[in-house]
Structures are given as C-alpha cells and as structure tokens.
Design a protein around this nucleic acid. Structure first.
Length: 754
DNA sequence: GGATCTCATGTTTTT
DNA sequence: CATGAGATCC
C-alpha cells in the first residue's frame, strides 16, 4: 500500500493528526470522528513513511478488543504484521514489563498471579479478620475502594495518611492486605499499574531503557486515564516526548475508577509545546441523532463545546416510548426489532443498551420467549461465574501452590470432608512450620515421615486431595492446559457436583465446557500465560463482529462501538441517571455523558424507552421518566411532548404515593408488590389526570416537624420541604443516619401520625 | 465435625 | 433475587 493510500481516505483534520511531526499531540475527537482511524493510520504512517521500527512504538488501549482491532487494522494498512510493536491494554502492557523486570521487584517473582475482584474481597476479609476488625463497621467493599483509590493515586500502604480513626483503620487494613498479596505472590489490578510506576521510580536505569526504546507512544481513550496511568505515560514519554493521545472529555465514564478527564487539560499544561487537533466531523450518525446527543451533552458544565457536524442530513426521528413495566418494555423492544427485520434491517445491526447489568435479565427473558437469538455482553460475567472461578482456582493452585486464596477456594470444593476444624489445624500447622497452606498439604503427601497433627478421617481426606494436587503439578509440566483441566474435572468429579440435572446445573456445566474449549485452544501456551489471559480479559473482548443477532450490553461496554439501530431502555430517574448519582453533581454529569455515549453509538435509528412501573427488590414502584429526556429538543422526537409526559407521570406517581399513605399503608408491604387492580391498563390510561391530583406536586405534601418513616433510613423528622417545580424535595433528619435530602416521589416516606 | 438450610443483606459501571 | 454468611441439623 502506498503513502497515498494511507492518507487518501482521511479528511484534512485527520490527515494533520496522522502526519503531525513528533512532540506531544492531543487529538480531541468527538464520537464517530474517526479516532481509531487516526490512531491506526498514524501507526502505519510512522512505520511505512517515517521508517520507525515497530518495536519502538507503544500503543495503549483500554480493552483487549480495541487493541486487537488496532492490530488488525494496522496489519491491513501495512499489508503484513509489524513485528514487535507493543500494543495492548494498560494492564497487559504493565504485566509484560513487570514480568520482564521481575528480578528487580523486591517482593515478587515472575510467576506472580493477578487477583481479580473476587479474590480481592477474600483477601480484604482475611485482612479484617487478622486485625480483629468488625467487618460490619468497616465494610470490605468500602475498604477495597479506599485501597484502590490510594493505588490509583500511587499511594502505598505505608504512605497512606491516617488522620482519624477510620483512615487509621483503612491504613492498617491496606497494609495487611498488601502483606497477604505479597505472601501469595499476587497483585491486584491496581498493583499492576502502580508497581510499574514504582519500578521505574526505584530503578532509573530500567526506566531509561524503556524511555529510549519507545520513540512513539500512542494512547486511545485518553479521557479515561487515571493518575497512575497518566504518570506512567509521563515517565515513558519523557525522553522522546513523542506522545500522541486521543480522547473526548464528553465520553469520560470511568470516574469511579479514578479516571479523570481533566488529564486532557493537564496534558496541555504538562507539555506546553503540545499541538492540539480537533476532529469534529462525525461520520457515524444522522443529523437528528447528533443534534439530540449534542443537546443532551451541552447541559454539562465545565466542558469545551465541540462543533460536531455530519453530512448525513436529516434522518429518522428518535422514537420515545413508555411501557407499562419492564417486561412490556422488553417485549416492545423485541417486537420492534422483529418489525425492523421485516423491513430489511438486519437483527445483528441492533443493540439494546441499559445502565446496569441486572437490567439484562428481563430483556433476555423476552428474547427467549419470542424465540429470538441475542448476544449478551457482560451480565454475570463469564469469568466471575462460580464454576469458572472454581476451576481457575484449581489451575492457579497447580501453577502456584503458595496461593492461599485459591487454596481456600478449592480445598473443599466439591465437598470432600475437609471442614473448618481440619482447616484450622492445617493452617496452624502450616504457619508453625513457615509454610503456606498449599505447601503444607504437599509436604503431607510427599514426605512419609513427616510429623503432623492429623488423624483418621481428616488425614485421609487431606491426603486424597494432596495427592491429586501433587499429581496435577507433575502433569502440568508435560501436558497442555486443556488436558490438565480435563484431568482436574475428572479427578474431583466436578460434573456431578455442578450438574444436578436442573436447568441451572446444565448451564453451569455448559460453562465448564466452554472454559475447557478455551483452554484447549490455548494448546501452545503454557499455564502461566493462560492464567494471565484469563485474568485480563473482559467480556467485551469476546464480542465477535458481524453477528446476526441483536446485542445486549451496558452503556459502559458500548463505548467504542457503533450500531445502525440503538435501543436505550430504562430511561427513568434512578436508573439513568442512576439513583446513586443523584446527589452529586459530578456523578450526575457522568451519567449524562453515559447517555451521550449511548446516543452517539447509533448510525441510523434510536429508540428510547422507560417503564411506567419498575420492579426493584421484588417490589414494584412507579417511575419518573429520566430528566435527560427533557433535554432532547421535542422536534427531534417522534410522538409525544416529553415535558407533559414527565409531568403526567410524576402526577401519577404522586397520586399513588398518596393512596399508599392511607391508614392501611402500614401493611402496604404485604400486598404492595403486585399490580393494583384499581388501576387502568396502560393503553387505557387517560392522557391527563384530574386537576385535583395534578396539584399534588405543586403543593407540599410534607411539612416541617412531621414525623416520617423511611424503609431504609428509619424514623425521622422533616426539617424542610421545597418545591422544585416538578417535584418536592424533602430534607429529613433521621434518628440513626442524620440529615438526608430526598425526592418525595422517589423516596417512600410514610407520614406517621402523632 | 460437617453439610445443609435458612435468613439476612445488599445491587453501578470494569481492567 | 442471588449470593454470602451464620445457625441448625445430621
């Protein structure tokens, strides 16, 4: 392929990005503006035209899928495989560096394992137990969050600043947590990044080697970098300063993971010589879709507006629909897809997006009921399913018997008569001898003369498993991962444990077989590589292109993808924006970006929907249409007047709450779950309500001094009530939890008579 | 001492 | 509703 071909298909902005001479370059790329194109073409351009050797190029992405696609496209451009290029996710790239430099890691060897979030939870619980800390007062998840945040900011356990009791506890837990990881020769996800930075900071010579090597560094989705990642990039690029980053602040949706789109601004400050290139032409969506998306995102503060434009004038209007409940909403989606299909749209070109994985279930059921195939991304993620985790734990234990987390998971799985008491004795015995539990077990079977505290049943159960483990370890050196897994399955008779004949059992066994299939494919890789792959894949990575079925996925996993037809479901306040983000402006802004990301995935058509009633916790509640729907100009939407819809629904919601706080309301939990018979069916519901009811929200329902009860927060007293125009905002002082601000139509507040 | 059951508890997004 | 941890049963 010639130079002309590499640059030919690019617009002027794209071309100037691709051919920009060295130095720091910041490409601000709106959705659908050819971001990946610019990256891949620049790599091809550097290699072909600038004669940069591939091994001197590093390109980082956030998912393996994105990385693979880049490899694929670069290969196509260059008509061959550029050998030796470093192209992968941040995490994978760091692992590679850490393994290669493992001799310089003081506390790890190169067989270190990668602990996922389930492992992390076990470790943190262990840490809490070791420190005699009550895990109900200091929740493991909370602790893990704090630890993760610290690591993202490159703060080690010893540097963690403790200035009050809770932070003191966090510090101790962090320290203990880290000790356990090190004892297991394991790193968590955050360690992979932080340890890479620490390695560079402690070994200037190593850093220099990498700095000199990587003449060009390219970064995708730069808005999603967090502090560690940013610091890593700064270090690696310090010598050549050829750092080329592509990002869009409006698509930053990983704040909760420490990502900070302000890194985009920082980039300009840190590299004053940097060039900035704007990609504003959208090649993906119709004008209508783009206008809607722009109108939504424009309401966020603290952003630089891009003038996105498209040649695809006009287009189909966005369709907004209300369904009665989630099941109806799901059916509506399935029906719509069927109708589109009849008109010639390929089912595979449709995607259904939602805020949380839990929402996929109803959709799946509807698809199954209709006998329509679908592909699902995420949900209960494959590698976090119990049976898969079990088997990975076996493999990990074989690979690294000192891994006590995997040991704990497998020692009595399937149940083989090794209970709490026996384990306690084993742990004590191991500790007294300075062994890890797995080592102790192996000593027990490989050394006949060993002194041990076990007898009878416990001893035979332990040695039976110990022999199995011993065997697998021997085998692992000779046979493939697939055969090893097969041997494990057989050795512990895993099938009869997991497959109990029920549907669920069969599903679980099918998952096992799927894993076995993956393992068999890895034939020529060794066990260590297999485990690493498995630890670093995400579900989106396994999403194959050109499928013929609609895709179900979260808005988060939709980032970077595009579909001709996009459905976004569950557009109700509390779902999108998510209830946990309602009180924080920054988080709310992120929810809005999430919606923006969803909208901008669409090429041709967008279908938005929400359910009038939503089931959460098994209880059905009336919803309020998402506030974001407000911001889409009415003329872009087919059908109804959004404002009116929202108002009407709020009125209804309020009128229902009203009926709930009748004297009977104390038993409302008993029969409150079902559909109330006195309500009209959705199709027959009158478009407007009697004005008496309409006034419910324009008049305060709560007043200062009232005693109220909230299901979760308990007893409280109303301090203040404000009308916001569309709803009532109540400030309540709860006796247990202090002062909270609640939205009347969402919070289930019961008024208690004096 | 171990397995099974029930109860409680708690659900955002992911490398 | 689904998973996890304690209490009870075997």
């Amino acid at each position: 392929m010639s130079k002309v071909d590499i640059l030919d298909s690019l617009n002027p902005a794209q071309r100037s990005a691709v051919t920009a001479s060295g130095g720091p370059i910041l490409v601000l790329a709106g959705p659908g503006s050819g971001k990946t194109r610019v990256l891949t073409h620049r790599i091809a351009y550097l290699i072909r035209e600038k004669r940069v050797e591939p091994w001197r190029i590093m390109a980082v992405t956030f998912t393996n899928k994105a990385a693979r696609e880049m490899v694929h496209r670069v290969n196509a451009l260059l008509d061959g495989d550029p050998q030796g290029m470093t192209l992968g996710t941040f995490h994978a790239t760091c692992v590679r560096i850490l393994r290669r430099e493992s001799e310089s890691l003081s506390r790890y060897d190169n067989r270190f394992l990668i602990f996922d979030s389930a492992d992390q939870r076990r470790v943190v619980s262990q840490a809490l137990a070791d420190l005699n800390i009550d895990d109900s007062r200091f929740q493991p998840n909370r602790m893990l969050n704090n630890i993760s945040n610290a690591k993202n900011e490159i703060v080690s356990a010893d540097d963690y600043s403790a200035n009050n009791y809770p932070t003191e506890i966090t510090k101790r837990v962090y320290q203990r947590y880290q000790e356990i990881l090190v004892a297991n020769n394991a790193m968590d996800f955050d360690d992979l990044l932080m340890n890479a930075v620490l390695l560079f900071d402690e070994h200037a010579d190593i850093l220099e080697r990498y700095q000199r090597r990587y003449e060009h560094i390219l970064v995708d989705e730069f808005q999603d970098t967090n502090t560690v990642q940013y610091e890593l990039l700064k270090r690696l690029s310090a010598y050549h300063e050829n750092i080329f980053v592509v990002g869009d602040a409006d698509q930053s949706i990983y704040r909760w993971r420490g990502a900070d789109f302000r890194n985009i601004r920082r980039f300009g400050q840190h590299f004053p010589k940097s060039q900035q290139i704007l990609l504003e032409q959208n090649y993906r969506s119709t004008q209508i879709i783009l206008d809607a998306a722009k109108a939504v995102i424009r309401r966020n503060h603290d952003r630089v507006d891009k003038e996105l434009f498209t040649d695809r004038k006009g287009g189909e209007l966005i369709k907004l629909s209300e369904a009665y409940n989630e099941a109806d909403e799901a059916t509506m989606v399935v029906d719509t897809i069927a109708r589109l299909e009849k008109d010639g749209t390929l089912a595979g070109s449709c995607a259904v997006m939602y805020r949380t994985n839990a929402q996929s279930r109803v959709l799946e059921e509807a698809f199954i009921r209709a006998g329509v195939n679908y592909r699902l991304v995420g949900a209960t993620r494959f590698y976090s399913r119990r049976e898969i985790k079990d088997l990975i734990a076996f493999l990990r234990l074989v690979y690294s018997p000192i891994d006590s987390v995997s040991f704990g998971r497998t020692i009595n799985t399937p149940p083989r008569g090794i209970g709490k008491k026996t384990l306690e004795v084993l742990y004590d015995w191991a500790e007294a001898n300075g062994w890890r539990p797995g080592e102790a077990l192996l000593k027990l079977v490989s050394n006949d003369n060993i002194q041990h505290p076990f007898s009878g049943r416990a001893y035979s159960a332990l040695t039976r498993f110990g022999n199995l483990l011993h065997n697998w370890i021997e085998l692992s050196a000779q046979i493939t991962v697939g055969d090893l897994l097969d041997s494990i399955l057989e050795g512990v008779d895993y099938r009869s444990y997991i497959d109990d004949g029920t549907d669920m059992g069969r599903d679980r066994w099918a998952n096992v077989m799927e894993l076995l299939g993956v393992a068999i494919e890895y034939e020529d890789h060794d066990l260590g590589q297999f485990l690493e792959q498995v630890a670093l894949v995400s579900d989106i990575d396994n999403l194959e292109d050109n499928a013929d079925a609609p895709t179900l996925l979260t808005l988060h996993s939709a980032k970077g993808l595009e579909f001709p037809v996009v459905f976004i479901v569950g557009l109700a306040d509390g779902s999108l924006p998510h209830s946990r983000s309602l009180e924080d402006g920054e988080e709310l802004a992120e929810e809005r970006r999430l919606f923006y990301v969803g909208l901008t995935r669409a090429l041709d058509r967008v279908f938005l929907s929400y359910a009038f009633r939503r089931t959460s916790f098994g209880e059905s509640q009336v919803t309020v249409p998402s506030r974001f729907l407000h911001d889409i100009p009415v003329e872009l939407v087919e059908g109804s007047n959004l404002q009116k819809r929202r108002r009407v629904t709020i009125e209804k919601a309020s009128s229902w709450d009203w009926s709930r706080s009748t004297p009977k309301s104390h038993e409302s939990n008993v029969d409150g779950g079902g559909v109330r018979k006195d309500l009209p069916e959705p199709s027959t519901r009158a478009p407007s309500q009697p004005s008496q009811r309409a006034r419910v929200v324009t008049e305060a329902k709560y007043s200062t001094g009232q005693n109220v009860y909230h299901q979760k927060f308990g007893e409280g007293v109303v301090i203040e009530s404000n009308l916001t125009g569309i709803d009532e905002e109540v400030v309540v002082a709860f006796s247990d939890l202090g002062i909270k601000k609640l939205v009347a139509s969402l919070a289930k507040l019961e008024i208690r008579e004096e």
